[in-house]
Design a protein around this nucleic acid. Sequence first.
DNA 1: ATAGGCACCTGGTGGC
DNA 2: TGCCACCAGGTGCCTA
Length: 283
Amino acid sequence: MPELPEVETVRRGLAPVMEGAVITRADVNRPDLRWPFPARMAERLTGQRVERLRRRSKYVLADLSSGETLLVHLGMSGRMLISGDPLGAFVHEHPAAQKHDHVVFYMDNGARITFNDPRRFGAMDLIETAKQDDHKLLAVLGPEPLSNDFHDSILVEAFKGRNTPVKSALLDQRIVAGLGNIYVCETLFRAGINPKRKAGRIAAAKVAGLVPIIRDVLGEAIEAGGSSLRDFRQADGELGYFQHSFDVYGREGAPCKTQGCVASIARVVQSGRSSFYCPVCQR
DNA sequence: ATAGGCACCTGGTGGC
DNA sequence: TGCCACCAGGTGCCTA
């Protein structure tokens, strides 16, 4: 579910109520999500000031005054809900506990942040901030697509000799970090590349052309998320999901949006996941 | 090293 | 209403 833009939207929504605030209490309602929580997580969070909220790929990272960083992954179904009255601008009554409310953070500014994740593919960990680059989950990540570390030659080199479909290559977090099923589909549509094409057989110029497209697709989605922030703050305080229209994702059988194209969007399953594409525009 | 498939979970939807 | 199959925005791990 949440890909880089949704995670960034969550980060931006949480930042105003978390950065500079102290965690006065943390309720940890089960022993694990995808993996066991780190030892004594609640105690290690309690009393810590959140110095900064960052994002790396699909991870939200909260740097704590203790020198540790809280790592959060939303998995497929993770959500964050803000309640309370931390800023004058939005007021949400604290809701009754819901099923799958696994972790609840209480801030000294009155905000309550509830992490809810039905499928429990999400994860949390505490890592020494200074050693974050060695963390198992972060160490394997490729370049951040919106940073300068991501550029033509990086992607061209990564695709070279690859016998895997371009769809899989772009989903590979070691090649570029943060893309998921939706935004890979959207990227390949804009690039006019069929998702079944082998990564290693695409002309270098065309691979290079993916770089600005990926940046645009993610950037536009982040903007859409940002503009929705105010709305759901006023609505129910829930972060991470927002209305966004896609060119191909979820549009099987619907008309291709390319001007003059009369084809309809097709769906194929690649390594167990749906790929949506226009069979005429994407070759 | 690389590619492919499975596993981990719950909930929603649509068909019978 | 009930049951069932299928689908879902992720990704680590195992196998060949």
